[in-house]
Simulated scan of single mutants.
Amino acid sequence: MAENRTLLQVKELKKYFFIGDSLFKKNRQYLTAVDDVTFDIKKGETFGLVGESGCGKSTLGRCIIKLYEPTGGNIIFDGNDITNISEKEMMRYRKRIQMIFQDPYASLNTRMTVSEIIGEGIDTHNLTKGKERQERIHKLLKIVGLKHEHASRYPHEFSGGQRQRIGIARALAVEPDLVICDEPISALDVSIQAQVVNMLEDLQDNMGLTYLFIAHDLSMVKHISDRIGVMYLGKLMEICESKELYKNPIHPYTQALLSSIPIPDPRLNKVSKRIILHGDVKSPINPPEGCRFHSRCRFCEKICTEVTPKLIEVETNHFVACHLVK
């Protein structure tokens, strides 16, 4: 259950990647991955972040944990601005902010045993040693549904679902406050996805964890999230409570996104109205003026092509970035 205390604040965060050189500074090209993103996460809350592939979700998560240095804006964690602190200072916060990566095959070192993978964070932060260290690793394996004999094995000996459980145990080893889940189920079989999500929910209840849950599976995000933010081409389009978003989507992009969710009943699915988006996603190297979504929006007006809309509260705790919403 979320508390009133804000654990994480992201203010006007930007991340641009330099992709080409030029004799003239003004002609240098940058990929705009994240652009002026603002939101907060309460202690004990799960904040879902959704959007099409390439919209900047994972880059945003990596900026928060400082795997990428932000180009601009501020990251405030538990009341402290960590945006420009040194790597040495950041070590204190790395214990409190951990990440579960998308690909369970690429995120684990194939030359290390499970015990070494999970114990690496314990050793880095000098949390415990010897017998206590091994007992802690065995306890973590049990928590994520694995056995203590798995500690001596290597990643290639496990299935994708088991590997992701190892990644979760690694993240939990240092007892973090915030866990950034970067599409943790997208590489898993459907039969395994629900198991992993249910486990994450149980861990949250038992350990008081706070999640930033990044995904593009809208039905799963609805299930696990308290609030949801919708991203498009580096910008946040809409933020509100999970139930409210699915009941009353306001931004045209959110409406189109939710209309694409398959309905389990074949008859209802056949007659359900799908919103088809025409045109291609614009390049983040040269994003369009005005609203990022205007080239695909069926309600586009002149102002949408000229002025970037601000994220404003249109209903209680329901924020939308759209000129056509009053």
Rank of each mutant, 00 (worst) to 15 (best):
Cys297Ile: 10
Lys129Val: 15
Met91Val: 13
Arg28Pro: 00
Ile82Gln: 07
Ile168Val: 14
Gln193Phe: 05
Glu175Arg: 09
Ser86Arg: 10
Tyr246Asn: 05
Pro266Ser: 15
Leu49Tyr: 01
Lys25Ser: 14
Arg28Trp: 08
Gly208Asn: 14
Cys297Glu: 02
Gln9His: 07
Gly51Met: 05
Gln162Thr: 09
Glu238Cys: 02
Ile185Cys: 06
Met207Pro: 09
Asp265Pro: 12
Leu140Pro: 02
Glu244Gln: 14
Lys139Tyr: 14
Leu212His: 00
Gly20Leu: 04
Lys25Ile: 12
Ala106Gly: 12
Arg170Val: 00
Lys270Ala: 14
Leu203Gln: 09
Val34Met: 00
Gly130Phe: 11
Leu277Trp: 09
Asp265Cys: 13
Val281Phe: 03
Asp35Cys: 04
Ser53Gly: 09
Ser225Lys: 03
Lys142Glu: 13
Glu315Asn: 14
His216Asp: 10
Asp35Trp: 00
Asn109Arg: 10
Gly229Gln: 09
Leu212Met: 15
Lys129Pro: 03
Thr210Lys: 05
Glu120Cys: 13
Val37Leu: 10
Gly73Gln: 04
Thr308Val: 12
Val34Arg: 00
Met112Cys: 09
Glu301Thr: 15
Leu236Asp: 06
Gln102Glu: 08
Phe299Ser: 09
Asn269Leu: 11
Glu120Val: 11
Val34Ala: 00
Lys302Arg: 06
His294Cys: 03
Phe319Asn: 02
Asp103Lys: 06
His138Cys: 02
Met1Asp: 12
Glu183Pro: 08
Leu172Ser: 01
Ile118Gln: 00
Val307Cys: 04
Gly72Trp: 06
Thr305Met: 10
Lys14Pro: 01
Pro155Gly: 04
Glu12Arg: 13
His323Glu: 03
Ile303Leu: 13
Thr110Glu: 11
Asp205Arg: 13
His125Val: 08
Glu238Val: 08
Glu116Cys: 06
His156Gln: 11
Ile75Trp: 03
Leu178Phe: 01
Arg5Phe: 04
Leu13Thr: 07
Phe101Gln: 01
Gly44Ser: 06
Ile312Ala: 10
Asn4Ala: 13
Gly20Asn: 14
Glu89Pro: 06
Val144Trp: 02
Lys139Ala: 15
His318Ser: 06
Ser159Arg: 08
Lys310Phe: 03
Leu218Ile: 07
Pro266Cys: 15
Val37Ala: 03
Tyr30Asn: 03
Tyr68Arg: 05
Pro309Cys: 11
Ile75Cys: 01
Gln98Met: 04
Ala321Tyr: 05
Ile180Ala: 01
Ala151Asp: 01
Asp81Met: 13
Cys300Gln: 05
Gly61Phe: 02
Glu241Tyr: 15
Glu69Asp: 11
Val196Gln: 01
Tyr253Arg: 03
His318Thr: 08
Ser159Asn: 13
Phe39Val: 09
Ile100Phe: 04
Ser219Thr: 10
Gly160Ala: 12
